[in-house]
């Protein structure tokens, strides 16, 4: 049986939320369908770009939080 995947399934796969059994079928479909394969690869590239955008809070705010915890009184 040929299983077809929705666009939402592709998004689930991208974020590792597609069940393993379905992922196997999707990978098979990716191998045989260049358009879906290109789409998936483009989304993966975008995901990597988003991964690289990581922001950090300042050390002073971290210190304030830890100080608050240490001085906490019930």
């Amino acid at each position: 049986m040929v299983q077809t995947f929705t666009q939402n399934d592709i998004i689930k796969a991208l974020y590792h939320e597609l069940p393993a059994s379905e992922m196997v079928h999707l990978e098979e479909q990716l191998e045989n369908d260049t358009e879906i394969q290109n789409n998936f690869e483009d989304l993966n590239v975008l995901k990597l770009k988003l991964d690289s955008l990581v922001l950090e809070p300042s050390m002073s705010v971290i210190s304030s939080i830890l100080d608050y915890s240490r001085s906490y009184k019930k």
């Binding site: 990581v54 922001l55 971290i62 915890s69």
Partner: peptide, 14 residues
């Protein structure tokens, strides 16, 4: 708590 904050601070702050 220090470990928990350190572990998740980037995701939460971003």
């Amino acid at each position: 708590l220090e470990e928990l904050v350190g572990r998740h601070k980037s995701k939460i702050y971003t």
